[in-house]
Amino acid sequence: MLVYLVRRLGQSLLAIVAMAVLVFAGVYAIGNPVDVLINPEATQAEIAATMQRLGLDRPLYEQFGIFVMNALQGDLGTSFVYGRPALAIIMERLPATMELALVALFLSVAIGIPLGVWAGLRPDSIAGRTIMGGSILGFSLPNFWQGMLLILVFAVLLGWLPAGGRGETTEFLGLQVSFLTWDGLTHLILPAINLALFKMSLIIRLARANTREVSLQDYVKFARAKGLSGRRVVMVHILKNIMIPVVTIIGLELGSMVAFAIVTETVFAWPGMGKLLIDSINLLDRPVIVAYLMLTVLIIVSINLLVDVIYSLLDPRIRLSEMKG
């Protein structure tokens, strides 16, 4: 287990280094770094100082070294727009995005798995077919259009829910969250649903396909032949087997949920990292873009690592073979 963890940790570090090289290549090496990294409105003295601090007069490999050293100390540049460290600005927006992504993930899992298992157990029933049809819809609607439709129906036509913003927040474990106040919750529902629908469809299809496959296995028939209740057969014998692929996908998708929250945050004016990124791109605030990219990679890599650990806990076969290897 330890060997396995160390090896996975090494792979994760490699992924982060690779991304650092890409970001460096994209921002520092292509084009004139002076244009890219220094506020065009800066004075001559400021330009000279920054160039020296960033070592832009040195050879490329040294510059990369400086970029990495600075990054390791959490220094990914200073925002042109806010005049503060880019990373700090991103971190302020991180809780909003994480909250949105986690609530959306919760929705897609809590609704997706039961629906998928149901459809997998009764693939030919009307309910099973309806669930499948719905998941195809959730799959194919463009995210922004679906978001606008939600706003149109629930905010504009029905007037039940607010169209955008984060609403009232309270402090929870030192972070500002919306889901604990009624106002915050009403603001959270629509964007969370919008972000969840695609993943929910994905989980429904995955859970359904795996349920169908698993329920044909001899061990399910044997479990029934032992006289177990239908409930136990489904909740233990089938569910535990389908959780292995489902957890993998959930993990991979949580990463992409953070990344793809951009569209939802823009449509619903949700003040998260994604919206910040779009604003920063519009304002050419490059240090913030760099910080966003590095942080997102870090998050996705950490989540994948976590998923691998959970995965190995779920599947005894992996645990053993990896322990040996």
Partner: peptide, 17 residues
């Protein structure tokens, strides 16, 4: 009434002790 199946590799659930 108990039953024993043909393929022992498939009759026990792989993820349960």
């Amino acid at each position: 009434i108990a039953m024993i199946f043909q393929d022992p590799m498939m009759t026990l659930n792989p993820v349960l002790r």
